[in-house]
Deep mutational scan, measured.
Amino acid sequence: ELVLALYDYQEKSPREVTMKKGDILTLLNSTNKDWWKVEVNDRQGFVPASYVKKLD
C-alpha cells in the first residue's frame, strides 16, 4: 500500500525516516495509530501517521 507525505518530516532518531511533502512511500505497518512504518529510498522507519495519507 502507498501513502503520500502531506508535510516534510525530519527524522529525530535512527528508527525514523526523513520525507518531503509530496513523497510517495510504501506503507509497511499501520497498526500503531500515531507512528506508521514506511519505506522510502530503500530505508525503513517510522513517520508520524498524521503526516501521511493512504492513496486509493
Rank of each mutant, 00 (worst) to 15 (best):
P48T: 01
V40W: 08
D8V: 02
A49Q: 06
V40R: 15
L6G: 02
D42C: 13
L6W: 03
D34L: 13
L2F: 15
K54S: 07
L2D: 03
K54E: 06
M19N: 00
T18G: 09
T18I: 03
Y7G: 05
I24V: 12
S50C: 11
E16Q: 11
W35V: 03
P14S: 12
L6T: 04
R15P: 06
P48D: 02
I24R: 06
W36L: 05
N41Q: 12
N41S: 11
N41R: 13
D34C: 13
L55T: 06
L27E: 00
T18D: 04
S30K: 08
I24W: 05
F46Q: 03
Q10S: 12
K37Y: 15
V38Q: 00
F46I: 07
M19C: 07
T18Q: 04
V40Q: 15
T26L: 15
N32T: 07
T18A: 07
K33A: 13
V17W: 06
K12V: 08
K21R: 11
L27K: 02
Y7P: 00
T18K: 04
L25T: 01
Y51P: 02
K12I: 07
P14R: 09
Q44C: 09
N41C: 12
P48M: 04
W35S: 02
V3T: 03
S30D: 15
T18M: 04
D56L: 10
E16L: 05
D23Q: 15
P14I: 12
D23V: 05
V3I: 08
W36Q: 01
D8A: 07
K37H: 11
S13H: 11
L6S: 03
Y7L: 10
D8E: 05
S13Q: 08
Y9E: 00
L4F: 09
W36A: 05
G45E: 02
S30C: 11
L27I: 06
S30Q: 10
K54T: 08
L28H: 05
S50R: 14
E11R: 12
Y7C: 12
K21S: 08
V17E: 00
G45D: 02
Y9N: 00
D56G: 14
K12C: 10
L2M: 12
Y7I: 08
A49T: 06
L2T: 09
V38S: 00
L2H: 10
D34N: 14
V3S: 04
M19Q: 02
D56Q: 11
R15M: 14
E39C: 12
V47I: 08
S30E: 14
E39M: 13
M19K: 00
Y51V: 05
S50Q: 11
G22V: 00
Y7Q: 11
D34Q: 11
